[in-house]
Nucleic acid binder design. Structure first.
Length: 788
DNA sequence: TTAGGGTTAG
């Protein structure tokens, strides 16, 4: 038009603007702006420019044009600028502009109201949303379908589903957008069933779903999952497209649906056949694999994405980081972190938290901590929860608890996940006071009726030695899932309460709840602790016969242990030889333990041969066999084995015991003499030892590893970590106080006997939780029936 | 100038 000579008129410019928008041609927009800038700008042209600048991504210049309009601004100018901010995700700016219009008493039209509402929805700013709602009512734009639809979405995104539903029900003539908005609201608030029934209701109302409706309802099929409905939507989508070419969003939603329904072959075929794909489509496949635990596949697709030169986005990284964590692939994970930095996704919270989690799961806590300490993320509850879970994943239970406390002192409100993450730490440490405090906290937050939280509480109480509290809580739970039954069963097993466990097991079988492999493991391990061979065999058989559950390695290890302890070593060995899975170290270890108990050298050697193949670095098994040799007097063999161990540099995991005194944890490692109170502890122990000798106790040194003189062996026994912890506790608590010790390994035979005697001499109740179970010592007796 | 949509961390 310039070739023609004259300056372009307003109409030509207005006609040109939509094309500029379509191509996001910012430079062209500036040029047009330059042409009109010296003239008296008509509001209609200025509004067009504001819109075009926003669509080209430049809200700053758009705002300048808007500001320059000053007095000649009309309702459309305000609506355009607010909508422009929303278009560019500058929701706070949109809301501020809305508030400014209120201060200036400008009358806004329905477009401005709709845009402002969507900004309030995106920022989940309920107060703001409600004030826009009142404004809409005052100004009489409230009866508009678009305004009502925007209100429905705003309330849904602010978590006010009841209000959203009420408003939706009140819309007289619902259009397809209103229906789709409500379907989407149900999907996003985790109500897939409601979404699907609304989707069906809409069709009965005579409204034919469009592309957006289908894309909105597909995640509901994935969440349920309902593969058949997903497939029928796929057919519907193809039928309504004569060329059968799916658009990117619909293709992506379908890929995600198939992947989440576990139908990876369909997901892959569809994905490969899609004509239009973007990075989100790739993410759907990558995340589908990652969430199903198919980490290698996820990474494989990621590398394929890179090989075609497509750049990942932040969601891609959120998919691949957990895949690295799953594979414990720290190097790959660190490369992903590098990529996050390269592409500038560091400021994305999802990415940051996934990176923190990846490092923690791969055992690199310092890297997690460094990322976490970057202040900006310090305010996010998920970052805190990730850190708590990360500490727990690495066995740092006291760090997990400390982090939880720090979080509350920083005024970050813990949520359900925080509680579920920190409760296992209190169980791990048997930190009852902490556990009780958390329980009251749970009640205050109103989380007590939440099933996973309740399950954690049962587990915590039983691990803290309070089986009665665990039972009471379990019995009063309104809703239980299979996990509730499983943790209760495991609690009975941990406390050696086989009868209660077996009766609970038959209750759950009769209750109609579907039992799983862990239910069986709980029941079997209760039988193991009680030595109930017949019952255990029956349960093991019914696993396959009645529930079609294939026993896992853990079940076999448990059965071998049960049979072996009962002296049925041949049956145990033939079970190992006939099992369909390749026996692992736990299975052979159970046999070895039983061989020690019954001094069976022939079988012990078979077990050790297999163990040294499976776990060449683990010394514990060698110790057991050398103990068997020593026990039957084959000293030369015992010595040879120990010499071979020291040559190959095998190390035994050092024993460690903890005790809680006045809210502080004290840890003792075997042989540690560095404690400030060591002298007094030693003296106290010598006195106890003299008493024990008077009672006729002769130390059983067969569990001592070192090849030394008998007297020295006794000294080594005396430095076993549980004895250090017990003497420390005796020194630092009032007479008569109960003592609770936790140990990382199993208690040895002599420590077991000695603890019984100490409980009698000192008149204390002593509870020891070792890696296998609880031992209650009182007045010279121990509650457990299966110990030596 | 406007409302609904695909992938996302603990």
């Amino acid at each position: 038009m310039q070739v023609a000579g004259g300056a372009p008129d307003s109409v030509s410019i207005l006609n040109l603007l939509p094309a500029i928008c379509e191509y996001s041609a910012l430079l062209l927009c500036r040029e047009v702006h330059g042409l009109v800038i010296r003239r008296c700008l008509l509001a209609v042209v200025a509004n067009g420019l504001v819109d075009t600048y926003c669509k080209c991504g430049s809200t700053v210049v758009a705002r300048k044009v808007f500001d320059r309009l000053a007095g000649s601004r009309d309702g459309v100018s305000w609506g355009t600028m607010i909508a422009g901010y929303v278009y560019n995700s500058r929701y706070r700016d949109a809301l501020e502009l809305f508030q400014e219009s209120r201060r200036l008493n400008v009358k806004l039209n329905r477009v401005s109201v709709v845009s402002a509402l969507s900004a309030a929805a995106e920022t989940a700013d309920l107060d703001m949303g409600m004030s826009i709602h009142s404004y809409a009512v005052e100004e009489g734009v409230y009866f508009d379908v678009a305004v009502k639809t925007a209100l429905v979405t705003m309330y849904a995104k602010c978590g006010e589903m009841e209000k959203a539903e009420l408003l939706f029900d009140g819309i007289q003539k619902r259009d397809i957008i209103a229906w789709s908005a409500m379907v989407s609201a149900f999907v996003q608030t985790g109500c897939p069933r409601k979404a699907i029934s609304l989707f069906q209701e809409m069709q009965m109302d005579g409204i034919r779903p469009n592309r957006v409706t289908l894309v909105s309802v597909l995640p509901a099929c994935a969440d349920l999952p309902d593969l058949n409905l997903g497939k029928s939507i796929h057919c519907f989508a193809l039928k309504s497209k004569p060329d059968r070419v799916l658009d990117v969003s619909l293709g992506t939603a379908l890929v995600a649906m198939y992947a989440k329904c576990g139908s990876f072959r369909s997901a892959r075929t569809l994905f490969d056949g899609l004509l239009h794909k973007d990075v989100v489509t790739w993410n759907a496949l990558i995340n589908g694999y990652a969430q199903a635990g198919e980490a290698e596949k996820a990474l494989q697709v990621f590398h394929q994405l890179q090989s075609i030169g497509q750049h990942p986005d932040s969601c891609t990284m959120v998919g691949v980081l957990p895949a690295c964590a799953l594979l414990n692939a720290i190097r790959e994970g660190a490369c992903m972190h590098g990529m996050v930095i390269k592409y500038g996704f560091e400021s994305d919270l999802h990415v940051k938290n996934a990176t923190i989690d990846m490092y923690a799961k791969c055992g690199d806590l310092p890297s997690s901590e460094t990322l976490f300490l970057e202040t900006k993320f310090y305010e996010d509850v998920i970052s805190w929860n990730t850190m708590i879970a990360g500490y727990m994943h690495n066995g740092q239970a006291s760090e997990a608890i400390a982090t939880f406390h720090q979080m509350t002192s920083e005024n970050i409100e813990p949520n359900l996940v925080s509680v579920v993450s920190v409760l296992p730490a209190t169980g791990y440490l048997a930190a009852l006071k902490e556990g009780l405090a958390l329980h009251s906290y749970v009640i205050r937050l109103g989380f007590e009726s939440h099933v996973p939280v309740g399950n954690c509480l049962i587990d915590m109480y039983s691990k803290c030695g309070k089986l009665d509290y665990a039972c009471n809580f379990f019995n009063q739970m309104m809703y239980k899932d299979i996990v509730s039954w499983n943790v209760m069963l495991a609690g009975y097993a941990l406390h050696g309460e086989a009868e209660s466990a077996i009766s609970l097991f038959s209750q759950v079988r009769d209750s109609g709840i579907e039992v799983d492999a862990l239910t069986y493991l709980g029941a079997l391990s209760a039988c193991r602790h009680a030595g109930s061979v017949t019952e255990g065999k029956k349960i093991f058989e019914s696993m396959r016969n009645n529930h079609r559950l294939e026993p896992h390695l853990e079940h076999y290890a448990c059965m071998v242990d049960l049979l072996g302890r009962a002296g049925q070593l041949d049956d145990a060995l033939s079970l190992i030889y006939t099992m369909p899975l390749a026996p692992d170290a736990a299975v052979w270890g159970a046999l070895l333990g039983a061989c020690k108990m019954h001094s069976n050298i022939r079988m012990g050697e078979i077990a050790l041969e297999n163990l040294s193949r499976l776990e060449p670095g683990n010394a514990a098994q060698y110790v057991v066999l050398s103990n068997i040799y020593a026990h039957v007097g084959r000293w030369t063999d015992a010595r040879k084995l120990r010499a071979a161990m020291s040559l190959t540099g095998l190390n035994k995991t050092p024993g460690c015991s903890w005790v809680e005194i006045k809210n502080a944890y004290h840890a003792f490692i075997v042989g540690d003499q560095s404690h400030p109170q060591y002298e007094s502890m030693r003296n106290l122990w010598n006195d106890l030892q003299a008493e024990m000798e008077k009672m006729g106790h002769v130390p059983d040194t067969t569990s001592v590893l070192q090849n030394v003189e008998e007297e020295e062996k006794e000294f080594f026994l005396d430095t076993h970590s549980e004895r250090l912890a017990i003497s420390f506790a005796l020194l630092n608590t009032e007479a008569g106080t109960e003592i609770q010790i936790i140990k990382n390994l199993r208690v040895c035979g002599d420590c077991h006997t000695v603890t019984k005697l100490v409980s009698r001499i000192t008149n204390r109740r002593i509870i020891v939780r070792d890696s296998s179970r609880f031992h209650h010592f009182e007045n010279g007796i121990c509650s457990c029936r299966d110990f030596w």
